[in-house]
Amino acid sequence: MSYLEVKDLKIHFPIKGGLFSRTVGHIKAVDGVSFSLDKGKTYGLVGESGSGKTTTGRSIIGLNNITSGQVLFDGVDITNIKRAKSDVRKDIQMIFQDPYSSLNPKKRVIDIVSEPLRNFENLTRKEERKRVQELMELVGLSPESILKYPHEFSGGQRQRIGIARAIALKPKLIIADEPVSALDVSVQAQVLNFMKDIQKELDLTYLFISHDLGVIKHMCDQIGIMYKGRYVEEGTADDIFFNPQHIYTKRLVAAIPDIDPNKREEKRKFREEVKAEYEKSYNDYFDEEGLAYKLQPVSDTHLVALPEKG
């Protein structure tokens, strides 16, 4: 049985308009998304800005209201997570994109990291301090630095503080929203390695949201590609990168810069071909509104949004 299961998730934001701010329509930020992920695995959610990937992630921990659909976590319905039991809320934590703005600059590290502990566990000051020091050690920061402020740390260290906060309650699922997008390559490597390490150590499950396909491929076992609030393709990393079926995925994969300068011309030609194919077959892959069709299986692991057979 899958560990986290999202069924036909819809998140619509009202558009206000007219003289009296009536709701005149809806932005369908997420429009019928379903996926499931297994324990101890990493699931990648990819898409361009505005595709609804972040909204999906945020809705699972209750930061966006779900319009319809269902979210099951370890068999428990957590669609309305704000009303769920506190141990379920403890089990799911989030890592945010920007380590510079997601940490309160006026709080010391100890207060930042212990905040979830204070919300969910009754610890004495001493116990709390000890836990925070352990956590700091776990994320590779010196336990003595718990009295420092966020600005005294580098970007990578700050993201580790964010991770320490997220794992303070020993969660089982972590939703990581663009955790390395604001970081330099070498720091990015540090954080990615570290996330892999603690995944093994703590048996964590990740929902990894990113627009960087290189990072996604490095981290994820399964990948879902979103476009305008819908899934266009889902599959294993190999399915997506070496056998993309949907024209949108093809274009996305083709756009990844190649690290080998010798393949430059080849790549350029390939991109032109894909672009031509994209323009030619656009109507075969998208409906009249320019949205993706429902997913159809093409293999055991691989689903592609294609029109109903006909």
């Binding site: 390559v185 990015q188 490597a189 290189g214």
Partner: peptide, 19 residues
């Protein structure tokens, strides 16, 4: 070091190099 720290879409790496 820089080259080694980038996740490469073409190749499998378990660990990235950290400077």
């Amino acid at each position: 070091s820089l080259l080694n720290s980038v996740p490469n879409a073409n190749e499998e790496q378990d660990k990235l190099h950290v400077i």
